[in-house]
Design a protein around this nucleic acid. Structure first.
Lengths: 350, 350
DNA sequence: ACACCGGTGGCAACCGGTTCCCGGTGTGCG
DNA sequence: CGCACACCGGGAACCGGTTGCCACCGGTGT
């Protein structure tokens, strides 16, 4: 009955100690490094460790105050390209800084969000990052404020990433990017091409990201003395299906417009397909612009004019500012810039 | 000097006990639920909990054996749409089953993968899921086998998701999807349209996913008695840029072909753009097909014919089989089917 | 030869929980 | 009125680590 290695693993530091003929403290010290241990002892301990294939239990270390810190991020759906890029930035920076990284999709449900934050509080996560816009209601501010406080009470930090800030005094770090400014620049570009009736394919009416972009749309019009026609403001959500549906309906309804600005590239993609299905040429008949500059934007035909958002950088910055702060650091509020990238999908009005 | 709530939080179960005038065990019991506690005591304890805004430390619970189990998944880059969908499936199913979910991007570096697995072993994760193809070398099998064993020794399970199985006897669960079969069906569809010279835009030459799809490509040819021209097999990686570059080069080199099959939709997207740039019509001049059926495939113009892979289901299944097993369960190896979805990008040969 | 000293390593307390085991009530019934 | 038995709650051990404190070791200086 030879059995390879000692039974099943799951060995504790005491097993190692016994096998090496020393005490648990000595093992801990050998493994910990910064303590004088005679080289003979060290060798014996290391051999026992190897033979048992021992790894210290990270949870036990954590509770003893010497663990790998952990960081959580919460988003609606990792499947959305811009979320994915933020997530990627967060994850990279977190592991670079030696943190573990937890994810949670809320599927847009605020209850899930709350539950998850509570779990993270129990985990004593160093920070939890909420990414993505939301409805900015008093209820939102209140709920989020409460999350921030409860996290702060266990020493974790709440970070809002691309999400509306709370009032002053909330223990929160917020990193945003300029939705209104980006939309303003984009729509200005479209108007410069001579378009006067530009359809806006928005997101959920109460979603801050959607609202901000819509605000930019309006501001760009007014800056040129054009009063936008409310009939040109359509609402849906941020999916390609929404863009497709909205666009088809607008065409069927005989709405008049020479250009379309979509709230996201996904929406634009759906809209483009609907345009094609209707036999319309882009940008010959209709110009089209998106928002987000997801990698695919350049593979649409025509390549999509859009506004670039530094999503990955956003994620990285979020963790860096969240972790690099001391209790005395003032709460931060960063706003990243965006810029429009001109491709082929918007042309002069015909 | 009134201070709101008791100082900073970070309260322990003993703080709660003191405040409620009971012992820590009692607090644990009322919080735990399944133990008879008088309602008076329960009320006092609950009040103390509320006043202190107490949440039990999850790490401490974990070490005591009653924690939220944790599950990890490791992928190359969350930014790739198919990875994102798998990740989504994994995450959803894991939280549905009450697990925490850790994420790690390896950026394709096997060292990172190893480090991460080691961390997860320390975390005593219930399972770690490795997703995505890789080079199937003896070194890979050996390394992976070792990871599997070392995870098994602390009671966690290794799951390979869309990644080549190890030899028999390794404590591993593997869930794959049929790359070869899918490619076979897809290429058969293309050949049925009369194409005889179909270019294959592959991935890394030693990457299993790429290889399997290539194998399907070859098999479909041979099944019709066509000996494929090796010059039509190009290699790159799975990015849109790779597809773009390869396609452009093939055109510039004057390679003859009437159809293109790309190893992924991303590659196809890049290729499509290159085709357009060269003034070629799809599918009028050249037919094009992809693989993966990412949501965007239908928004390319023409809508991309591709093969659908149930990525999200794959992820869900991976966690379900990984978690739903007892030590006696035999190691599983599941193979999910795929099917081609016909859209507009492949037509009859001109 | 003896005191002193620095290098080692063990004991025990602690991190924040859970749970076994036991003893003190209160109540019901004979 | 007394006894047995629920019911309820406290003490202490334990989960798997870390670390402060102290004793013991041998070597060196006088």
């Amino acid at each position: 009955m030879t059995r390879k290695s000692e039974d099943a693993g799951r060995s504790t530091i005491r097993d190692v100690a016994t096998r090496a003929g020393v005490s648990a403290s000595t093992v801990s010290r050998v493994l910990g490094g910064a303590y004088p241990v005679s080289s003979a002892t060290r060798t014996r301990v290391m051999r026992a460790v190897r033979e048992l294939d021992y790894v210290a239990d990270a949870r036990a270390k954590a509770i003893a105050g010497v663990g790998t810190p952990t960081l959580a991020f919460v988003l609606e759906d990792i499947t959305g390209p811009s979320f994915a890029h933020m997530a990627h930035g967060v994850e990279r920076e977190a592991t670079r800084l030696g943190h573990l990284c937890l994810v949670c999709s809320t599927e847009g449900d605020a209850r899930h969000e709350l539950e998850f934050v509570e779990m993270m509080r129990a985990q004593r996560a160093a920070a939890v990052i909420l990414v993505g816009g939301t409805a900015d209601t008093p209820e939102y501010r209140d709920r989020t404020r409460r999350m921030a406080d409860s996290l702060a009470s266990v020493g974790s930090r709440l970070v809002l990433c691309g999400r509306p800030p709370l009032g002053p005094g909330a223990p929160v770090t917020v990193i945003e990017y300029d939705n209104e400014g980006g939309a303003y620049a984009l729509v200005a570009h479209v108007l410069t091409q001579g378009h006067r009736r530009v359809l806006f394919l928005g997101g959920k009416p109460d979603h801050t990201t959607a609202q901000d972009r819509e605000r930019g749309y309006l501001a760009a019009h007014r800056a040129r003395g054009i009063e936008p026609d409310p009939a040109l403001l359509l609402h849906g959500d941020f999916t390609r299906d929404s863009g497709h549906r909205l666009m088809r309906r607008a065409i069927e309804a005989g709405l008049e417009f020479t250009a379309v600005v979509a709230a996201t590239d996904m929406v634009a993609a759906g809209a483009l397909t609907a345009l094609h299905e209707a036999g319309l040429d882009v940008p010959g008949d209709i110009s089209l612009a998106g928002y987000d500059d997801i990698p695919f934007a350049r593979d649409l035909h025509p390549a999509l004019t859009t506004v670039h958002v530094p999503y990955e950088e956003l994620g990285r910055l979020a963790v860096r500012t969240a972790l690099g702060r001391t209790p005395e650091t003032p709460d931060e509020h960063l706003l990243l810039g965006t810029h429009v990238v001109v491709r082929d999908s918007v042309g002069p009005v015909s």
